[in-house]
Design a binder for these strands. Sequence first.
DNA 1: CAAGTGACTAGTG
DNA 2: CCACTAGCCACTT
Length: 110
Amino acid sequence: MAVPADFYERVYEVVAHIPHGRVTTYGAIARHLGIGRSARMVGYALNQTLKSEGPDLPCHRVVNRLGQLSGKTYFGPGVMEALLRQEGIIFLDDDTIDLDRHYWDPAEVL
DNA sequence: CAAGTGACTAGTG
DNA sequence: CCACTAGCCACTT
């Protein structure tokens, strides 16, 4: 089997379970879903679910492996970083968070 | 239907 | 961490 048909739905579920004040990466989600190298699809899926599901999806807690807010342009001017700062996320740069401090793995669901 | 695009990542240097 | 390459796959043109 390659990619699950309900891939977008799985992304939605994983992102929806990201704890407050924590973040994860596209690659982590991709691996958790079993599509490993297709991290790109996670970002794409997020964009689609964002339009479909709306603000219920805390996709502002998903960043790339460097902790950069690669998707901030899809939220609006400064919205993504504002949300993250509001949750106590430490920023190393205007668009980069401290991934070492806040990283959350999809498998860590409790 | 071929080529281009993109919210990515791992490997090399 | 930066620069570049290859792999990846849904979607658009």
